[in-house]
């Protein structure tokens, strides 16, 4: 069959809302786009363990420690699940980790910000997971089967995390004056980076074009960002916190909140490596990977010995 026919059939399948499965023919650019997106998503889950892990040993109650431990495990599980989804496209986990270490693969820039107080654990759950959910709910309908199924599973857990994060914020916002100050401060610091999680404006996004045609993405960056803002503003009001945006106001005509301009200079600066924790996060991952080498080698050597024994017997 001609390449062109294959491409046409592929597009028809997508247009008919059928899922593309690992063994199906797909254009090389579709494969590349998915590997880039899914591995970035997997790396984000894994790098995200650092700012949250930063507070496990200082969680202020047994309950909060247990919830945080469980949450981070969910994230690690998502990472595993997503690495597996990416592997169905013909790339190994080791290669993906290598791409992360060389800077070829990225992770969500939000994790280049530091988690400074306990309220940040609340803010990360509420805002960062909240923003991630908006994106991931949309991705449940993505055209690649394994990715879509991963998203369905992941969304269930993420919505739980978002509620837990919001609960921390609510407790602190209604707690002592010092707690309230911490909560507001965390919101101030995490609000704008959370909005940046949706990526550049649609007219400036390099990856949106084919991704929409191939239904990898179902909604644009700006649409998703607006959804997130609309649902989050009221949640802040309920617990008495103020969104740090003087231009934020309800627009009756649009049926949406208007909001101020995002600092795109900051966005690109952090994406390109100059955020508060870029080096720390990546160096940590590299160092730990290197420190674990002898363990992985030992496990491989032991498995080989066992296999040889089986063959001998």
């Amino acid at each position: 069959m001609e390449e062109l026919d294959k491409l046409q059939q592929f597009q028809q399948k997508i247009d008919a809302e059928k899922k593309i499965e690992p063994k199906d023919w797909m254009p090389e650019d579709y494969r590349k786009h998915l590997i880039r997106q899914i591995s970035q998503h997997a790396h984000s889950e894994v790098i995200g363990m650092q700012p949250e892990g930063n507070w496990i040993t200082r969680a202020p109650s047994l309950r909060s420690k247990i919830i945080l431990l469980a949450k981070i495990q969910d994230e690690a599980g998502h990472g595993l699940y997503l690495y597996s989804a990416a592997e169905t496209l013909g790339i190994s986990r080791e290669e993906m980790i290598n791409q992360l270490h060389t800077g070829k693969a990225k992770y969500s820039s939000i994790f280049n910000y530091p988690s400074l107080t306990w309220a940040d654990i609340g803010a990360i759950g509420w805002l960062v997971d909240g923003a991630a959910i908006v994106n991931q709910v949309s991705l449940q309908r993505t055209s690649y089967g394994p990715y879509s199924r991963a998203m369905i599973k992941i969304c269930m857990e993420e919505s739980f995390h978002q509620r837990q994060g919001y609960e921390i914020m609510a407790k602190m916002a209604q707690g002592t004056p010092e707690q309230k100050e911490m909560a507001q401060d965390a919101l101030n610091r995490w609000w704008w980076p959370s909005l940046m999680m949706f990526g550049p404006h649609d007219n400036e996004s390099a990856h949106t074009g084919n991704a929409m045609k191939w239904k990898i993405k179902r909604e644009t960056n700006d649409e998703l960002r607006q959804k997130f803002i609309d649902k989050t503003v009221q949640q802040a009001e309920v617990i008495g916190l103020t969104i740090p945006d003087p231009d934020l106001k309800w627009n009756e005509e649009r049926g949406h909140y208007d909001f101020g301009e995002i600092d795109w200079e900051e966005f690109w600066r952090v994406v390109n490596g100059n955020g508060p924790c870029n080096k720390k996060r990546l160096n940590h991952h590299k160092k730990v990977h290197e420190e674990g080498r002898w363990v992985r080698e030992a496990a491989a050597a032991y498995a080989k010995k066992q296999k040889n024994k089986q063959i001998a017997a």
Partner: peptide, 24 residues
Amino acid sequence: AEWCSYGPTLEEDLALTNIALDLT
């Protein structure tokens, strides 16, 4: 729990913090 993000593989990171969760 201090093993969070320090495991030699992602699977072991999960295993150790999962045991931490049981113990806590």
